[in-house]
């Protein structure tokens, strides 16, 4: 009554305007406008110069950044469990059991295998001829990753795989082989134990991602060699 509530509201919006902790919850993507100090920090990462030195060396850049014209690359900080787009697949680990294809709720994984003739110590494996994932219909539920018994399939960490045509969203086996595999930690406690961050660290090799270390030759011989 009497409009006091209205003015209380005005004060709250003013508080949100002024308080720095309430500002900038928006993340600018793919690049972020920066002021001179942040710019200097960004440059210091690869040039070991002090802020003053940087200021002295690049006066034009400083003026530009004061005018809000300079932007640096930025991405939203995301957790290492993020279920991203680029599937990571390790051919060496995959036996072609097609559990992923079975468990996919949409049936978008297509696997064709043939007898490889490779007789490993651990047992036989199939040669995977076709491994197609129709990313256009994928909903990133991660059931395929959950299903994989040999830790061969992983979720990715990115979200920038958009294409102009729907056909291009089909990922085939060459694509999976050639990609850098930076597996997400989702449903992979062994990676979480190693504090692996798919965004910061480099790609992992097939023998680094398993639930267990690869058994040594003697262990293999003792376990399976007699067969």
């Amino acid at each position: 009554m009497f409009g006091f509530g209205l003015f209380k509201g005005l004060l709250i919006t003013l508080k949100n305007l002024i308080l720095p902790s309430r500002l900038f919850t928006t993340h600018q993507y793919p690049d972020r406008k920066v002021g001179p100090i942040e710019l200097a920090k960004f440059h210091q990462d690869w040039q070991n110069t002090s802020f003053l030195q940087f200021l002295f060396n690049n006066p034009i850049k400083i003026i530009q950044s004061l005018l809000g014209l300079i932007s640096i690359k930025d991405r939203y900080p995301q957790h290492s469990r993020f279920r991203g787009q680029e599937f990571g697949w390790y051919e060496n680990r995959c036996t072609g059991c097609a559990s992923c294809a079975k468990y996919c709720p949409l049936g978008i994984i297509k696997i064709e295998t043939s007898r490889s003739g490779i007789d490993l110590d651990e047992g036989q494996k199939y040669k995977v001829d076709v491994f197609d994932i129709d990313m256009g219909r994928c909903m990133f539920c991660g059931l395929c990753v959950e299903a994989c018994p040999y830790d061969a399939l992983f979720m990715g960490s990115g979200f920038e795989e958009s294409k102009y045509f729907r056909q291009e969203l089909n990922i085939d086996i060459d694509n999976l082989k050639n990609n850098d595999t930076k597996p997400s930690n989702w449903f992979r406690p062994q990676l979480e134990g190693k504090n692996y961050d798919p965004r910061g660290s480099g790609p992992l090799e097939w023998n680094q991602v398993g639930r267990h270390e690869k058994p040594s030759d003697t262990e293999q011989a003792s376990k399976w060699g007699k067969r």
Binding site: N16, R22, T25, T26, K33, L67
Partner: peptide
């Protein structure tokens, strides 16, 4: 810009100085 700041957003900042 001002509305965005009040709503703890950023507002247009891409084109030219400060958008």
């Amino acid at each position: 810009r001002l509305l965005a700041r009040i709503q703890s957003r950023l507002g247009p900042n891409r084109w030219g100085p400060f958008g």
